[in-house]
């Protein structure tokens, strides 16, 4: 009896040990809200994350093997794209929208500027299949990966058999992207009581709370809703945002509120990349809002800012830059994995 108890105990210890090794814990501050991603359907695991990271940086996903996810989502731009206002894909084709930054995706309820995609796992199907992005298909990606002995090995290592399926490709890409967490900005240090805002930043913070926080809600700096911030339609694109998906007039020209973390790395701004500088964005909110469009009610009252206040607001926004995130080597091109 005693022997068997000891045996059970040893087994338990062993199991706990293996959990510590294999279970990957997402690290984020306690003032962040609860995550939205359902990790129970895709539990994080170090090998799967590394497989996803390799896929993210590998042009093998595109038809002519020239474009990777990182071509448009560069780690040094907080995974946005800064050379062009509109994204730039296979054979130099120009897309319809500005590539958004990728971080804190576990808190998103929908993806793309118009929320066309409802789950991170299936998001990658869009760029893989888009004729102006990677111009391939998930079937072709499976075929290409299957012909690579390196990938067959990696899938074996991750899943304990070498089957390369769309579910595995998509879920591993999602896992890598879920680890992209930005929570180490100066703002975060202030939240954690490690440092204090200077006078300018504190003034800027108060202006931010008054004018911007209703949509760009802290600590993620987005409420993840669809809103109009009064941009007039670019008639060369005629992009009506959320309306494209729901066809409801009340959704015309609504776009997903982007996070304001890492703005110094993610220019140009807005869904069509129409602004290159933060100061242009502030000018838009203070005197450029087009009130003839379907403007969201949070912006009904004009935002009056003196030039000093504009400077203060910008100095607060700069505290949202997260250098530790942008230069985190764990997120960059994988030199070699095994």
């Amino acid at each position: 009896m005693k022997v068997s108890l000891i045996f059970v105990f040893v087994i338990l210890i062993f199991l706990m040990g293996s959990f510590c090794v294999y279970k990957y814990q997402l690290d984020y501050p306690n003032y962040f809200p609860a995550v939205k991603y359902d990790f129970s359907r895709n539990p994080l695991d170090e090998n799967t994350i590394q497989l996803g990271r390799k896929l993210f940086y590998d042009p093998i996903l595109s038809a002519d093997q020239s474009i990777s996810c990182a071509s448009c989502h560069s780690p040094f731009n907080a995974f946005a794209h800064t050379d062009h206002s509109l994204s730039h894909g296979i054979q130099d084709q120009i897309g319809q929208r500005n590539a958004p930054a990728l971080f804190n995706l576990a808190w998103h309820e929908s993806f793309m500027w118009d929320g066309a995609i409802n789950h991170l796992d299936v998001q990658a199907l869009a760029p893989i299949s888009h004729s102006k992005e990677m111009a391939s298909s998930i079937q072709d990606v499976i075929t290409r990966l299957n012909s690579s002995s390196e990938y067959r090995e990696l899938f074996f290592k991750t899943y304990h058999d070498s089957l390369i399926s769309s579910e595995r490709i998509l879920k591993s890409l999602a896992q890598f992207q879920l680890t992209l967490i930005s929570a180490n900005s100066r703002y975060d240090s202030v939240r954690q009581g490690k440092v204090e805002f200077n006078l300018q930043e504190r003034n800027g913070y108060h202006l931010f709370i008054k004018h911007c926080n209703s949509c760009h809600t802290e600590p993620l700096f987005t409420n993840h809703q669809f809103k109009s911030n009064g941009l007039s339609v670019d008639t060369t694109l005629n992009d009506y945002g959320r309306w494209n998906i729901t066809k409801m007039p009340s959704d015309s020209l609504l776009f997903k509120v982007p996070s304001l973390r890492n703005l110094s790395y993610t220019y140009p701004y807005m869904h069509d990349g129409r602004f290159n500088k933060i100061s242009q964005v502030i000018d838009h909110y203070s005197n450029g809002i087009d009130r003839s469009v379907n403007l969201s009610k949070e912006l009904n009252n004009p935002i009056l800012l003196s030039s000093n206040e504009k400077v203060d607001l910008i100095s607060f926004l700069l505290t949202l830059n997260d250098k530790a995130f942008v230069f985190n080597p764990k997120h960059q091109f994988p030199k070699k994995i095994n």
Binding site: N42, L120, D121, V122, S165, S166, E167, L170, K171, A174
Partner: peptide
Amino acid sequence: GAMSGDLDP
């Protein structure tokens, strides 16, 4: 999210 079997993309 991503599914397999008959629902595989």
